[in-house]
Write a protein that binds this DNA or RNA. Sequence first.
DNA 1: AGGGCGCATGACAGCGCTGTCAATACCTCA
DNA 2: TGAGGTATTGACAGCGCTGTCATGCGCCCT
Lengths: 335, 335
Amino acid sequence: MSEPTIYDVAREAGFSIKTVSRVLNGEGGVRPETVARVRAAIEHLDYHPNPAARRLGGGKLPTIGLVVDSLNDPFFGEVIAVVERRAVEMGMDVLVASTGMDAARNQSQIERLVRRGVAGLIVAPFGEGQAARAVLPDKIPVVVIDRQCGIQDKDVVRVTDHEGAHEAVCHLVAHGHRRIAFLGETAEFSTVQDRLAGYSDALLEAGLEVDGQLIETTCWDADAAYPLALAMLAPADAPTAVFASTPLVGLGVLRALKRLDRQDVALVVFGDFPLAELMTPPTTVVDQRPTALAEAAFAHLARRLEDPVAAVVETVLPTRLVQRGSGELPPRGPR
Amino acid sequence: MSEPTIYDVAREAGFSIKTVSRVLNGEGGVRPETVARVRAAIEHLDYHPNPAARRLGGGKLPTIGLVVDSLNDPFFGEVIAVVERRAVEMGMDVLVASTGMDAARNQSQIERLVRRGVAGLIVAPFGEGQAARAVLPDKIPVVVIDRQCGIQDKDVVRVTDHEGAHEAVCHLVAHGHRRIAFLGETAEFSTVQDRLAGYSDALLEAGLEVDGQLIETTCWDADAAYPLALAMLAPADAPTAVFASTPLVGLGVLRALKRLDRQDVALVVFGDFPLAELMTPPTTVVDQRPTALAEAAFAHLARRLEDPVAAVVETVLPTRLVQRGSGELPPRGPR
DNA sequence: AGGGCGCATGACAGCGCTGTCAATACCTCA
DNA sequence: TGAGGTATTGACAGCGCTGTCATGCGCCCT
């Protein structure tokens, strides 16, 4: 009635549990004929090794831990979906943990997962440099996603934040914009800092002034961005285009535009979001391609699970400018 | 260097491991003074019991399994976020599993989680009646969410599908609509069947004819709904209002409306979605309140983990009609 | 023929915890 | 004073698996 154990398999196959264990773990040193018989017994009994027991014997759980900011964020939702699919394909589970933008919680979540005995971790890290690095375990493989945070000795998969922002702003400039606003929280994340740098560089290259009045670096979420966007777009000399450094900030901007009933302000958002194509006008975005990022992260983790001492790699995926309309609006004339 | 074990705590406290175990599990029969000393030792060593070892001793992992259709669906994303937050609050983990609308995978995922030794399961079930019920384990608590699927002997948390659809269609009727379309896949899910029933009942109550031409029951996702919506809205005698039975179907309809450049078709979507307020016009929805649903599901599971023989309850949460504009449009005049 | 070697397999001790049952000390009541 | 409780604690055997080390056997070489 209860789950069969390795003893049942051993009895069924007519060998010792150790031999079964060898077959299970592909250790070799077993006659092919024996392997076949053990396999048959496993099949016959529908045996599945008990992960807890395995772990107890010093091993790791067939489980991957995934630590992200927010589990209902569309970006991370995509990441979760990909990681889960790949993990299940190779017989592993996924434990999820959210940090909710809280460094302490980030740390405690990581520690919890490590204690649980996960075999590897995919983490969207938090903070910067030493602090960010310190909370990552060294005993198991870790792949850092989305934000590099100055971490040097772990595999990292991120996107071209600087180049993506640069391209977006160049795009706006190419469409005639001279006054382009930047909205985003730069204190918290290096990614947003990189995007701000990309923004500034693009302006400078175009021979345009970087106007501090048009740069808002204190809004993280949509609720914070909304009033700031409202205020920024109100004046007579308001910018004719806006670069939103994250989808949430973009949402705040879109709300402000809706509120102001303005469809003439050009907008590019860093990070795609569902229904962007249904906005009026459809929103032009810098696609971070979360699926590709997640695939790469998982591939790195899988590689490192096999070969823990493989060389550390940093993968920087290119972003993709998706022109949908809002980023191609011309500057409106003076009111 | 390595994690402290119960032996370390016992030594530190000056008692046997069994006494430490008693304190850990709140078994009682331990002098308060002893409890305090053990607690102090635990604190001092930063000891955390090894879940794998616990499970091996016949127990369950401090882990909840969550099985949903899709991990990047906004609705389930909300559910995941809530469940994870609550679970962590009570020291538990969350293992996620997606089924991708595949009955076989649904079953294998559930079996996998059960084998892992999760303490309880929250499942969006699949199929109908016997088949749906059969894959649910009986050894551990299970809470069924979103779809009842004819399951009688498990706790269920769902929403008022019939009433919600009924209210939505009545709302459209009240705004003068006489030709109201229904789009959604009814073969797969009883929830959508209930919504269709609510739709039909509302029409009949209003003395309106239920026109099979206006009912499309074969589209599950946005890609399938799009051409069907396009076709349905094209004729001269096209419906003046549409009821979309799921957010994905709603998305397909919105795409079709965008394509046709029509802003005069009334629309109510069953299930809220991000950015609905930013549509033109903003989309009126029947909010399924995923957060409330997830909270209720978790509460049920927690209750049942404490008391496995508690009476089975079915919680039916009311939906909420969120009027944003698209559902309040008047019927357009003849072209 | 005999020593040595490699291959295939098995016996057994943990891993960290909980369940069972025993032991001890201290009371209580007759 | 002694039998029988009660409260507190501990010894020990698993749980299912893997790591270590031992065993048995056939084969090669000298």
